[in-house]
Simulated scan of single mutants.
Amino acid sequence: MNLPPSGRRVLVSGASRGLGRAVAQAFAANGDRVAVHFGSRVDDARLTLESLAGTGHVLVGGDLTNPNGAAVVVEMATEALGGIDVLVNNAAVNTRHPLAETSYEEWAAVWQQHVAVNLLATANLSHLAARLMIDQNTGGRIVNIGSRGAFRGEPDHPAYGATKAAVHALGQSLAVSLAPYGIAVASVAPGFFATERVAPRLEGPEGEAIRRQSPFGRVASAEEVAASVLWLSSPSAEWSSGTILDLNGASYLRS
């Protein structure tokens, strides 16, 4: 049930831009075939697809907040790639909602959205992909994108921090239950990293303070995070199953 070092079939959720795009590019450069999932940003997803090295990649659109939508995404990826060896759960939302400034109606809606996308979509895709890997009898890898905020708290984004903590816990539970099938499950917990979405913050007045969070005096690149995802998906990383890998440039150290 050992995975090959390349030539694998990889589904990356939320891969239209940002970290998802960097992850898709890392797998493609490794010689893997990638299903690029998108929710609504089809034009961005096409740009991701066009940027990938190699051939055999595919776009897969679908609403992951709906369990049926998640099933369709996995079905389309499986049909296009001939199976799934690696799942990267990257799709997420992160809406600012500090309690003191947020109405109850908005608060409830934001929490429902974060739970649906960040947690339930991750759980549903993991179930679907893992059952497929079990049926294939080839082993597999699941890597979840968590967050430093799961440990240090997110006062302006509490639903994000809470759901990412749940994603970490989910990954560790699945690591234990899926190991007998040769499926390793791990999570990464990035700190602040540069993407198109956060570029205005990094270029604005708070940019220097954000960079000073790390003693390196900078933030990570999406490519650095993607490299860790690629390694955790590799054959040599099986013994790291169950880990939560901190990727925050020593900006937050947990015991």
Rank of each mutant, 00 (worst) to 15 (best):
residue 207 G to D: 03
residue 169 A to C: 06
residue 133 M to L: 08
residue 210 I to N: 02
residue 144 N to F: 09
residue 141 R to F: 05
residue 165 A to C: 01
residue 154 E to G: 01
residue 187 S to C: 13
residue 133 M to R: 11
residue 220 A to V: 02
residue 215 P to H: 09
residue 233 S to P: 02
residue 145 I to H: 07
residue 220 A to M: 09
residue 153 G to W: 05
residue 237 A to Q: 13
residue 145 I to M: 05
residue 172 Q to K: 15
residue 180 P to V: 04
residue 200 P to Y: 03
residue 156 D to M: 07
residue 187 S to I: 06
residue 202 L to E: 00
residue 236 S to Q: 15
residue 213 Q to G: 00
residue 196 E to Q: 12
residue 186 A to G: 07
residue 221 S to P: 00
residue 215 P to M: 05
residue 103 S to T: 15
residue 210 I to A: 06
residue 139 G to D: 09
residue 234 S to N: 08
residue 117 V to L: 03
residue 212 R to T: 04
residue 213 Q to E: 14
residue 133 M to H: 09
residue 202 L to G: 00
residue 212 R to Y: 00
residue 127 H to C: 05
residue 161 G to E: 06
residue 212 R to H: 10
residue 193 F to S: 06
residue 116 A to R: 02
residue 164 K to P: 06
residue 237 A to C: 10
residue 159 A to S: 14
residue 123 A to Y: 13
residue 189 A to V: 02
residue 111 W to T: 05
residue 219 V to H: 04
residue 116 A to S: 14
residue 190 P to M: 11
residue 158 P to E: 04
residue 173 S to R: 12
residue 110 V to D: 11
residue 104 Y to M: 11
residue 179 A to P: 03
residue 206 E to Y: 02
residue 160 Y to W: 11
residue 146 G to C: 09
residue 208 E to V: 06
residue 217 G to H: 08
residue 104 Y to C: 03
residue 179 A to R: 14
residue 136 Q to W: 03
residue 179 A to I: 00
residue 172 Q to I: 06
residue 174 L to A: 08
residue 237 A to K: 13
residue 176 V to T: 10
residue 156 D to F: 07
residue 214 S to G: 10
residue 110 V to K: 10
residue 205 P to M: 08
residue 187 S to D: 09
residue 131 R to T: 09
residue 106 E to V: 12
residue 238 E to R: 15
residue 166 A to V: 07
residue 190 P to Y: 12
residue 148 R to Q: 15
residue 153 G to C: 04
residue 191 G to M: 09
residue 173 S to V: 08
residue 184 A to I: 02
residue 123 A to D: 00
residue 213 Q to Y: 01
residue 224 E to M: 12
residue 103 S to P: 02
residue 135 D to R: 15
residue 196 E to S: 08
residue 213 Q to I: 00
residue 182 G to E: 10
residue 191 G to T: 06
residue 112 Q to F: 00
residue 145 I to L: 14
residue 197 R to L: 11
residue 147 S to T: 01
residue 103 S to R: 01
residue 115 V to K: 04
residue 191 G to R: 05
residue 181 Y to V: 01
residue 208 E to D: 15
residue 195 T to G: 04
residue 190 P to H: 12
residue 168 H to P: 03
residue 155 P to Q: 03
residue 163 T to F: 04
residue 236 S to C: 01
residue 223 E to V: 10
residue 210 I to L: 14
residue 173 S to F: 08
residue 121 A to L: 01
residue 170 L to W: 14
residue 194 A to R: 15
residue 197 R to W: 14
residue 226 A to D: 09
residue 149 G to Y: 13
residue 231 W to D: 05
residue 231 W to V: 09
residue 219 V to E: 03
residue 186 A to F: 11
residue 104 Y to D: 12
residue 128 L to A: 12
residue 169 A to G: 11
residue 189 A to T: 04
residue 147 S to M: 00
residue 215 P to C: 08
residue 128 L to C: 06
residue 119 L to Y: 14
residue 157 H to K: 03
residue 146 G to Y: 11
residue 196 E to C: 03
residue 162 A to E: 06
residue 159 A to M: 07
residue 147 S to G: 00
